[in-house]
Design a protein around this nucleic acid. Structure first.
Lengths: 89, 89
DNA sequence: GACGATTGGGGTAATTGGGGTC
DNA sequence: TCTGTCCCAATTACCCCAATCG
């Protein structure tokens, strides 16, 4: 389906989550969200992935998985449009 | 449709209700108010939902409902415009 | 090449989360 | 039953300046 793989800028994602652009950068650095890098080093995020994180309603199945996941052991998958909601607290 | 989905921080909601941020967190944990979580685990609340709760004066009829509300049996729909992401941690 | 705006990286202060207690 | 406060740990926000984007 057309998930709309538009690329969003850190500022866009920050506005969606009501956080600081720097925080979005940290998410990407921590592997909590997939990021595409420009040749210059700036980051772009997939609109479909960001929306999935915002709604967060489709991955209730993973609640148990998240509970059993060590915070610092996250291998930071963030490879594709998947629930990169690793390491909760 | 513009549902006015601005996101508020716990501190903002706490200031609106004149309560402690911890209390707002408990509301979210109890599923009495919808909450959206950042990948980092922090909560964000929908401005529209918070306002609906604040302006709840329009439905004084609920006073009895509140008194009859079963604490452990109520699914706490948090009657809100939009997908209320009930307590999910 | 130049310009304004955004982004990245580092570091520090403030907020938030969870648990437990009164 | 509900709220406010204590602890500590993690996350987030704002400061700087240099580089990149459009």
């Amino acid at each position: 389906m057309d998930t709309g793989d538009r690329l969003l800028t850190p500022g866009e994602v920050a506005a969606l989550f009501r956080v600081d652009p720097k925080t979005v950068t940290r998410w990407a650095a921590a592997g909590r969200i997939g990021s595409i890098r420009t040749p210059g080093g700036h980051r772009r995020f997939r609109e479909s992935e960001v929306r999935a994180l915002l709604e967060g309603e489709g991955m209730l199945d993973e609640s148990e998985d998240v509970a059993n996941r060590p915070r610092n052991a996250g291998p930071a998958p963030a490879g594709g449009p998947g629930p990169a909601n690793a390491g909760l607290y």
